[in-house]
Nucleic acid binder design. Structure first.
Length: 783
DNA sequence: GATCCTCGAGTTCA
DNA sequence: CTCGAGGATC
């Protein structure tokens, strides 16, 4: 062999191996730069020695000449289609049939995810890829060799040894979800046409006449079967053959497994189903194949489908339906959310009739119009969403949707704040929808937790005027509730047959009303943090409510606090503080609170303010929190050090300058203060600070073992709920957060933990199982 | 001023 | 669960 020939051969081998490590094993062995050098050297050598060219060279993956049509390829061994099963029962039948025919029990099955891509057959002769063909009708397909060669994970030359002279490998060409997304992002940026979904992406890419286009598409391949074999033998079971294929350089899904019996199959199905959304590729089910080839031969075929294999499909995740209307929902804060009303359609096992469109921007992005045919999906397998519009199906004469100008409930103007995505009904509490939502929120499980006060009842109570403000709930009587029920029933039943036919006179159902009153009564003794959350103050969710309760200790303190003092708490900034101040500044809101208190609402767990407040209640902090122009942290500390707090309300520029404060800052401070409202705010804030300081207990609470540690809980625990676990951890000083980040101390993972566990592992964060948690809790006396 | 982390708010269906 | 935006941090 001449010198260049040997080098060319070596380079081809090195590159093929690097490709295999990179694309198949996902375990790169050489740096990209080195790979590029080899490639360039090989290209140069092949150019100098045209006689040494070979079409299994890695430089020849992308051919250049676009074809005009695809040649037909006859499959020597037909490419099968599979029978489908949707119900567990069909799977059981399938297994029973095999057990009876073969007279075996619990045979082994080779199982695999059913990728949503394009089936392909690859023919290797003497270890070299010669033909790649689509499935076509199973007997004849199209020759897509030029395109398939561009797929990096398809070996052009087999690795290892022991392969038959002729070997047909069948598998799926698909587009990994991440690659699909990346491609579409790029397509968007470059102005190309984006791909509709990974499946279409894969199919469309392979049917490109110009392989150079295919080469740009991020396709991948998994082998799952063999076709014709000549001049060699293969192992006796499917799983062993897959192992061989892996040795010879083919990618084989890591999700493949061998299981036994119906239970094994169904467990596998559910396991994959649960992880479906997090798999790196789209699947539409799983495939079960009898592992033993002798058994397969004995089972044979029914028409074109084997009796030894079956596809167990998942319910469809994406469906087409018609958008019949767009309604506006008004939320607790007045947010106007467009909701799509859909012609009912089965998606992933449930009938979907509506889907949120989030906001006007989203509607504009999708350009959904009434009457459009749309594709609906259940995001994260739960919440329906509209993926896109099928524009070819759009009826004539439609126009883009627009946010209505007026609230459909109260008629107030719907407005959008500068720079915000949401439009809001400006009606506030004059809007019946907002009042209703306020009551619903108040009663909800995480707030006052009034069982029995569901949407329906809230709706009726509000509509019929029994509840006009939150306090009215606590004045309801049994008679009120029953009268309301009668009104509702009367309204619903046609006047003609309004006879109380179903109810025996004098035996009116009252249990629900009694239970509801009991639940309302129980809620009088709720905790302060729940009550604060229940009030529905903008920007005050559970977490902020909890902080307010923990730091300030009592409703009386919180409801009288000037807004700058709220900023003393961590995680409360200007926006939230002002929102709190605004809420408590309104006489109507104070009156609602008064009514609640008068009618027996008495929050428990009130206590003195937290001693930790001491270090946050100084004059300098207050000056910063008041947001006075030119008064920075540094200046504020200077002023705080130089000036007695009682003087602030009256001090003049000269005195401040004399105390060492720069002219500009002193002037700014005094100018600010001399506006009436500001002076009053300053005085109120100073007084509130002093009062709080006086109320602080002398000693700090002892430190818990988890002080300053952030913990995240995920999955389900067996000995307690996640919430109980959270409370116990908090009792030991931990902060329980909802999502994992690098600041997380450790993650407690229970059964079937999901993405949070993954993220923790990615970030290398400690993961505790339930046993470790329980052991830790009992060690610190919190079991 | 940018970036990262959390929290709030809205949402579906059985 | 996901998005948007507020808060903290550098």
């Amino acid at each position: 062999m001449s010198k260049p020939a040997a080098r060319i051969d070596e380079l081809r081998r090195l590159i093929a191996e690097a490709n295999h490590r990179y694309y198949v094993l996902d375990d790169p062995s050489v740096p990209d730069a080195e790979y590029d050098l080899w490639m360039r050297e090989l290209l140069a050598l092949e150019a100098e020695n045209p006689d040494l060219a070979s079409d299994d060279s890695p430089t020849q993956r992308v051919g250049s000449a676009p074809a005009t049509a695809f040649a037909q390829v006859r499959h020597v061994v037909p490419m099968l289609s599979l029978s489908n099963a949707f119900a567990d029962e069909e799977v059981a039948d399938f297994v029973r049939r095999i057990e009876q025919t073969l007279d075996v029990t619990s045979p082994a099955f080779s199982v695999e995810p059913k990728l949503d891509g394009l089936a392909i057959s690859l023919r290797y002769e003497h270890g070299r890829l010669t033909v790649a063909a689509t499935r076509g009708d199973g007997a004849t397909g199209e020759d897509v060799t030029a395109n398939v060669r561009t797929i990096r994970s398809v070996p052009l030359r087999l690795l290892g040894e022991g392969w038959p002279d002729v070997l047909e490998v069948r598998g799926e060409v698909f587009m990994p979800v991440a690659a699909f997304n990346a491609y579409n992002e790029k397509a968007l940026a470059e102005g190309w046409k984006p791909l509709a979904n990974p499946r279409n992406g894969a199919a469309g890419s392979l049917r490109q006449l110009d392989p150079r286009i295919t080469a740009q598409r991020p396709l991948a391949f998994y082998a799952y079967a063999i076709g014709a074999v000549e001049g060699g033998t293969l192992p006796d079971t499917h799983s062993q053959v897959l192992a061989k294929l892996r040795d010879w350089g083919f990618p084989v899904s890591a999700e493949n497994a061998v299981v036994r019996g119906v239970d094994g199959l169904l467990d596998y199905y559910r396991g994959i189903g649960a992880r479906r959304a997090s798999l790196p590729f789209d699947i539409d089910g799983v495939v079960y194949k009898l592992d033993d080839y002798a058994g397969q031969r004995e089972m044979g075929f029914v028409s074109r489908a084997p009796r030894w294999a079956i596809a167990h499909k998942f319910p469809a995740q994406e469906q087409m339906t018609v958008l019949e209307g767009i309604e506006i929902q008004i939320g607790r804060t007045g947010a106007a959310t467009p909701v799509a009303r859909l012609r009912p359609v089965h998606v992933a096992g449930v009938v979907v009739t509506s889907a949120t469109l989030h906001n006007a921007d989203q509607v504009a992005r999708l350009d959904v119009r009434i009457g459009d045919t749309v594709i609906v999906r259940r995001a994260g397998d739960v919440i329906p969403e509209i993926v896109r519009v099928v524009e070819s199906e759009r009826p004539r004469g439609t126009s883009p949707w627009q946010m209505p100008a007026a609230c459909p409930v109260c008629g107030s103007e719907i407005v959008r704040e500068e720079g915000q995505a949401v439009w809001r009904c400006s009606g506030e509490l004059t809007c019946a929808a907002q009042r209703k939502e306020a009551v619903r929120h108040f009663a909800s499980r995480r707030a006052m937790d009034i069982e029995g006060l569901g949407d329906r009842i809230v709706e009726d109570l509000c509509d019929l005027g029994y509840v006009k403000q939150l306090g009215d709930l606590y004045a309801l009587t049994l008679d009120d509730l029953l009268a309301m029920k009668r009104e509702v029933d009367a309204r619903e039943v046609e006047p003609a047959d309004a006879e109380p036919a179903t109810k025996a006179r004098g035996k009116v159902a009252t249990k629900w009303a009694e239970n509801l009153l009991a639940a309302i009564d129980r809620s009088r003794g709720t905790t302060l943090e729940r009550l604060l959350f229940a009030l529905g103050i903008e920007h005050v969710g559970e977490s902020t409510a909890k902080a307010l309760a923990a730091w300030f200790g009592s409703l009386e303190t919180v409801r009288r606090l000037p807004w700058p003092l709220f900023k003393a708490l961590p995680d409360i900034g200007g926006e939230v503080a002002r929102s709190l101040g605004h809420f408590f500044d309104q006489a109507g809101n104070q009156q609602v609170i008064d009514t609640l208190l008068e009618r027996g609402v008495a929050p428990t767990e009130e206590h003195a303010p937290s001693p930790k407040l001491r270090e946050r209640l100084d004059v300098a902090t207050l000056l910063v929190d008041l947001e006075i122009p030119k008064v920075t942290r540094l200046r504020a500390e200077q002023i705080g050090g130089a000036v007695n707090r009682d003087m602030l309300a009256t001090i003049d520029v000269a005195a401040l300058v004399a105390a060492g404060v720069p002219d500009a800052v002193a002037e700014s401070l005094v100018a600010w203060r001399d506006k009436d409202a500001n002076a009053a705010l300053l005085v109120r804030s100073l007084a509130a600070q002093s009062a709080l300081l006086d109320a602080l207990p002398a000693v700090a609470a002892s430190a818990g073992p988890l002080d300053g540690v952030t913990v995240v809980l995920t999955g389900s625990l067996s000995s307690m709920t996640r919430e109980q676990a959270g409370e116990k951890l908090e009792a030991l000083g931990a902060k329980v957060a909802g999502s994992v980040s690098k600041k997380t101390g450790f993650v407690v993972a229970g059964e079937s933990a999901g993405s949070k566990l993954e993220k923790a592992q990615q970030l290398g964060i400690d993961v505790w199982d339930e046993d470790k948690l329980v052991a830790f809790l009992s060690k610190h006396g919190a079991a």
